[in-house]
Simulated scan of single mutants.
Amino acid sequence: MRSVSLAFAILRLLADAGPLTLSDIGRSLGLSPSSCLNLLKTLAGEGAIERAEPGKRYRLTAAWQAAALLDNGGAAALAERARPLMLRFAQRSEAAVGLWAAVSRERMQLLAHAESDAGMRLRLADEQRQPLGGGAAGRALAAAQGVDARELARRFAPVRWQAALDFETYAAQVREAAAKGFAVDEGFAHRGVVTVAAGLAEPRPGFCLSASIVAGSRSAAEIEALGDALRQLRDALGAGGVADAGR
């Protein structure tokens, strides 16, 4: 019976997070590589999942995706609800806006993004991944989830910052994000880029909205206002609001 339960857990994970590697799936569900591989082979043999290139990731087959049997209001539904709000926010703020999902204990992935039509603008790469603790998104998600110091240090350890950042400063920034409702990264993750982010602990596995602008293009007060506006968008999205959000 446990194997049946684990098989459905894999299917729900792929429905929510999209294509994942064997390692991602195993870490997310606490499975050994051999046990995870056996379950994946069984699900592939039954036509529920398939291998997706590049990266040798597993995904639901088109038939299972179309049937929406595993849609529990997770990533797909959230991204669908978020896209029009993100586009309005991007146009109004002239920022590159992203919706991220935690896809494993190590990584988050971009689910959806929107950009303004300004002449000079940033653009996020489709389906890009980053360390779970990286950038403003990593800080914001940790703040929203209320992770303890040990987990925060685990998330921080593998991140390669483009500007020097020690753990004590990072932890203080996470605490500040928890108090404000949004996090700020000013050139630590990417030189020349300022990003604000607001995390959603629910629905699981955890999501985050981000908005990125060119460094030096806004005053400190304007960056704070951008973060506060993104927090309001996060709150509307988390509450399922569409009609009034982003106006």
Rank of each mutant, 00 (worst) to 15 (best):
F8P: 03
G246N: 14
A189G: 12
F182N: 02
A149K: 13
C208N: 01
E222P: 05
A7T: 08
R88T: 07
A9N: 03
V242G: 12
M86V: 14
R51N: 09
S3Q: 12
K180I: 13
R107D: 04
A177W: 07
V193E: 04
L69H: 02
L78K: 05
D228F: 07
Q162R: 15
S34K: 12
N38V: 10
D166Q: 14
Q109N: 14
R59Q: 13
P19L: 03
L60N: 02
A220M: 13
D228L: 14
G135P: 03
A229G: 14
H113T: 15
G55D: 10
T42I: 14
P19Q: 06
H190G: 11
R175K: 11
Q128N: 11
A9Q: 05
G181V: 05
L124Y: 04
E80P: 05
L29C: 04
I213E: 09
F156D: 03
A96M: 04
P33C: 06
V193D: 03
R51K: 09
D117F: 07
L43S: 00
M86L: 13
F89S: 00
S104E: 02
R27S: 12
L209K: 00
D148C: 13
E151G: 03
I223L: 07
L233H: 02
K180F: 08
L233D: 08
